[in-house]
Design a protein around this nucleic acid. Structure first.
Length: 554
RNA sequence: GGCCUAUUGGAGAAGCGGCUUAACUCAUAUCCCUCUCAAGGAUACAUUCAUCGGUUCGAAUCCGAUAUAGGUCACCA
């Protein structure tokens, strides 16, 4: 007769610790009332996903709002899918969004008393718990091969039974300990399954912070808790880790709701108090077939946080946008607070929508413009430098040529009550401001300029010559504009649209046309910021150089 | 297929039995301002809350059925 204890000892002879030892090693946290311990638990399988940013943002926010603890745990139990270095990468990217863990995995190191915070380094902890389960007869080794499992599934399909390893289908459940011992001694590979006592025709009441209370069928599957590679499965690791790390609120994606009964049963079997759960809606997108589907890293570039970073979106813009999805009252709040100090907003789970929102790039752009519009020239310079240094070397070298010049350009109509909001991301900058720089201008203009075809070259030459000789920059904007009108009138251009409309035959065009000629000449583009400021920045000498060059090429 | 969840304009959503003529924001369109662009200002944009039935003096709000969509059923997380 082989007892459960002997079997457990046979499987894990090296494990001497007990659950009590672990309870002592990881005591309850001493935290103020209402403080929540949350965690972000990514798998190191690639770059940060926008949905993960959303989850981590909320985890972080809940901990901050309650003076609790936010920690990061690396879930690297799937060694096949692991991508080297992506754990560090994830942390760096979170940092760019001002999400820094109080505790846990930090990339190259870790901090806190509840570690290790990398699951592959916690193998012994899981084994202690599994050994206990084995001793209690709540778990058993399973020797079924992939093929056998496949056969079971086929049989179930034929009989229209629910799929899975349970009840009569759970063959290894009925092995005697003697048989188990023999197989193990024979070196047969095995996994360890949890012995479920649930019944799927019964329901468990579960409560979720965002979905409220609902009922769901009990788990009756003997799920694998220990894989043949010696690592635990997600379900088991979640229960052990969140217990011993003393997580108070588990915040994760909605896709986990279905496995909640498993987690509830596991917690109960171990006699542990389950944490609170919040299952977040998933960010969606309309797919090719017209239906909603989860944002996909493969299909949607906005699914990767790196996309926004590369394009030079301010990180606040994405965070602000994500907050509007997180809490329906956030938008109103942030408008009242003039797009500032969003950390002061109090997050609440019941202001969260149950349905996955469609990712709205337009709204990200909107927030981005607002945020950039609020920055002063120094902040803009710093942000642009930080961005371009990493992602946009051309722009970086441009800024570094002369930072004051760069700030002058970026400061056009910025220091007024309603500043321009024409930049939504730093990635656009090079194309937009390149013409201010003489060498880039020469390059652009060498391809020829496209003036309005209404006017022949002679007229354009005459106007430009007059502008060169008589348009002074040593005056305020209004006088300058009047000056330009006078020049226009000399050449047959109406001073404004109304005058022109009253007598269209009397004029060649309007001041607008004159301005356009100057604009195209100076910037090579049909639109630019306020011409007056463009000319101020270029200075008279450079304006004239450009005008002369255009005249001689016409 | 079983189970779970959801369903208010192009998008995010508020409203949760009469104070709604369905708030607010983004997007879009038109107009004004104007040297272009941006900004700013003004206006328009769901006769109706997936559908059908029921309860009620009264329903987007409560109940039921149907439809549609999403999730989940791994030694992946």
């Amino acid at each position: 007769m082989v007892t459960n204890k002997e079997l457990a000892e046979l499987i894990f002879p090296e494990i001497k610790e007990t659950i009590e030892d672990l309870e002592k090693r990881y005591p309850e946290r001493d935290l103020p009332n209402g403080a929540e311990v949350t965690r972000f638990a990514p798998s190191p399988t690639g770059f940060l996903h926008t949905g993960s940013l959303f989850t981590s943002l909320i985890c972080h926010k809940v901990a901050k709002d309650t003076n609790g603890v936010f920690y990061v745990r690396l879930e690297d139990t799937d060694t096949k899918r692991e991508i080297q270095g992506s754990g560090e990468q994830l942390l760096q990217q979170l940092h760019l969004f001002n999400i820094d863990p109080d505790e846990g995995y930090l990339g190259n190191s870790e901090k806190g008393n509840y570690g290790p915070y990398v699951q592959s380094k916690r193998a012994d902890i899981y084994k202690v718990v599994i050994k206990y389960l084995l001793e209690q007869g709540l778990a058993y080794p399973c020797f079924c091969s992939q093929e056998e499992l496949e056969d079971i599934r086929k049989e179930q399909e034929k009989k229209k039974d629910n799929p899975g390893y349970y009840g009569e289908y759970a063959k290894c459940r009925y092995l005697t300990n003697e048989q188990r011992k023999e197989k193990i001694l024979n070196g047969e590979p095995f996994v360890i399954r949890f012995k479920s006592s649930g019944d799927h025709t019964n329901k468990v009441a579960v409560t979720d912070l965002v979905h409220g209370d609902f009922e769901i069928a009990q788990n009756d599957l003997d799920i694998v808790i220990y894989k043949s590679d010696g690592l635990p499965t997600y379900h088991f690791a979640h229960v052990c880790d969140d217990h011993f790390m003393r997580t108070t609120t588990v915040i994760r994606g909605e896709e986990w709701i279905a496995s909640l009964p498993i987690h509830v049963e596991l917690f109960a079997a171990l006699g542990w108090k389950a944490p609170k759960y919040a299952h977040l809606p998933v960010i969606m997108k309309i797919g090719e077939n017209g239906n909603k589907r989860k944002l996909s890293k493969r299909l949607d570039n906005e699914a990767a946080v790196s996309y926004f970073l590369k394009d030079g979106y301010p990180s606040e813009a994405l965070v602000m946008y994500l907050m509007t999805i997180a809490n329906s009252n956030f938008e109103e709040w942030i408008f009242e607070h003039h797009f500032e100090n969003m950390d002061e907003f109090k997050f609440s789970f019941d202001k969260m929508s149950l349905e996955g929102a469609l990712f709205d790039m337009g709204k990200v752009n909107f927030f981005s413009k607002e945020i950039l519009g609020k920055k002063n020239k120094y902040e803009i310079r710093d942000m642009a430098k930080a961005y371009s240094q990493e992602f946009n070397p051309e722009l970086y070298s441009l800024i570094c040529r002369d930072e004051d010049f760069f700030m002058d350009i970026m400061n056009i109509e910025r220091e007024k009550e309603n500043p321009r909001k024409d930049y939504e991301k730093f990635g656009d900058l090079y194309d937009r401001i390149g013409f201010f720089y003489n060498d880039i201008y020469d390059n652009l203009s060498s391809n020829g300029l496209s003036f309005n075809e209404k006017f022949n070259n002679q007229v354009i030459k005459e106007v430009l010559t007059d502008v060169r000789d008589n348009l002074s920059l040593e005056q305020d904007e209004q006088s300058w504009f009047n000056n330009m009108k006078e020049i226009g009138e000399k050449h047959g251009f109406a001073p404004n649209g109304k005058t022109f409309k009253q007598n269209p035959d009397a004029y060649k065009g309007t001041v607008g046309d004159v301005a356009e000629m100057i604009r195209i000449t100076l910037s090579t583009r049909k639109n630019s910021p306020n011409l007056y400021y463009v000319m101020q920045i270029l200075k008279k000498e450079e304006c004239n150089r450009r005008i002369n060059s255009v005249i001689s090429n016409l």
